[in-house]
Amino acid sequence: MTTVVNDTGVGPLLRGWRERRRLSQLELALRAGSSARHISFVETGRSRPSEEMVLRLAEHLEVPVRERNALLLSAGYAPRYTESPLDAPRLEALREGVERLLRGYEPYPALVVDGSYTVVAANRGVHLLLDGLPEHLLAPPLNAMRIALHPEGLASRIRNLREWRAHLLSQMERQIGLVRSESLRALYEEVAAYPPPPGAEDGPEGAEAEPYPYFALPMRIEHDGRVLSFVSSISTFNTPMDVTVAELAIETLIPADPETAAYLRSLAEAEEASSSG
């Protein structure tokens, strides 16, 4: 994704973020230690905000890091946040830490995606779930949303597809509301248009009215004749100073029942016994 700069100046951009957050000028001013009059002058272009003020307003408006650079450029300042390639030497510690985390989470699935849901790292638990999918879905760059919702992908194996699909699309809609990304919007339109796999609408889970006996909505997926249940947890980096790092998300799939956990542990033990023997 690229940083988009609006040539009308920083004022309209800030007003757009304020309206998106449903804050009045007074509410924003109180949070940022300013005045409604000054916020009004900034938004209408009558006053040029300082670099510190741009960053302070961006912080209170919860503007993503990439968009903070766009605000600074529109105000006539240099970008504050770098955008390093993931293989850059300065991110070596991050890469090693993430790889250790993914390995340590095995045998349960865990993966890392960027802001467009491209998979940048995954552990063996994820590859277990992807086993047998068609090559065209597994060809790089691997995209988590395409794999999950494509009728030839995991969608054909997810027992509660109707609910899980609604959850994933809602997640994407919330993200689109936070960032200005044409690539993300195009991905949403693509996966939202996927037809359901044959029989998905008539499956036993689709018409089930009873609530799930879980603490969160699970993804119930078939694997090797079994139905495994997972709930998803997503983590991001705190106070990132790099655009690339800010857009990374670590998703872990937590077994939602003892049977799923036991099955994955048994697979890992069998694999370890086979390799050591």
Results as ranks from 00 to 15, higher is better:
220 R>Y: 03
120 V>W: 09
37 R>M: 11
94 L>M: 10
96 E>F: 00
162 R>Y: 00
77 Y>S: 10
65 V>S: 09
161 L>V: 10
46 R>Q: 14
198 P>H: 06
62 E>C: 09
152 E>M: 06
258 P>A: 07
273 A>M: 14
274 S>P: 03
189 E>R: 15
223 H>R: 13
133 L>Y: 03
19 E>K: 08
125 G>K: 15
129 L>K: 15
25 Q>D: 05
247 E>F: 02
74 S>F: 00
27 E>R: 14
62 E>T: 11
269 E>I: 02
237 F>C: 09
13 L>T: 01
206 G>P: 11
270 A>S: 08
49 P>Y: 05
114 D>S: 11
8 T>V: 02
260 T>R: 14
270 A>I: 04
276 S>C: 09
241 M>E: 11
51 E>Q: 06
261 A>F: 05
97 G>V: 10
50 S>R: 05
98 V>W: 01
229 S>K: 12
157 R>L: 15
63 V>W: 00
263 Y>E: 06
2 T>I: 01
220 R>A: 06
230 F>L: 11
32 A>K: 06
118 T>A: 07
82 T>V: 10
227 V>A: 13
43 E>D: 11
108 Y>P: 04
210 E>K: 11
193 A>T: 00
174 R>M: 02
53 M>C: 08
175 Q>C: 04
159 R>C: 13
202 D>P: 00
160 N>F: 00
268 A>P: 04
228 L>I: 10
115 G>W: 03
241 M>Y: 06
151 P>R: 03
103 R>H: 08
266 S>M: 07
4 V>I: 06
218 P>S: 08
136 H>K: 04
180 R>D: 04
136 H>W: 00
181 S>H: 08
202 D>Y: 03
170 S>Y: 00
47 S>Y: 07
46 R>P: 04
248 L>C: 13
64 P>I: 12
179 V>A: 07
212 Y>G: 14
115 G>K: 02
186 A>D: 15
63 V>T: 02
227 V>Q: 10
209 A>Y: 06
71 L>W: 01
223 H>Y: 07
271 E>Y: 06
122 A>L: 15
36 A>G: 03
57 L>F: 08
97 G>T: 13
228 L>R: 11
39 I>R: 09
255 P>G: 12
235 S>P: 03
158 I>V: 15
204 P>S: 04
220 R>V: 00
112 V>L: 14
227 V>G: 10
170 S>E: 13
270 A>E: 14
120 V>M: 13
221 I>M: 08
214 Y>E: 10
4 V>A: 01
171 Q>F: 14
150 H>A: 05
221 I>W: 03
205 E>H: 10
168 L>Y: 07
230 F>Y: 14
172 M>A: 13
225 G>Y: 08
224 D>A: 15
210 E>D: 09
42 V>C: 09
211 P>H: 09
226 R>V: 04
29 A>C: 07
230 F>G: 12
111 L>V: 09
150 H>N: 08
168 L>V: 15
227 V>F: 09
191 V>M: 11
243 V>D: 01
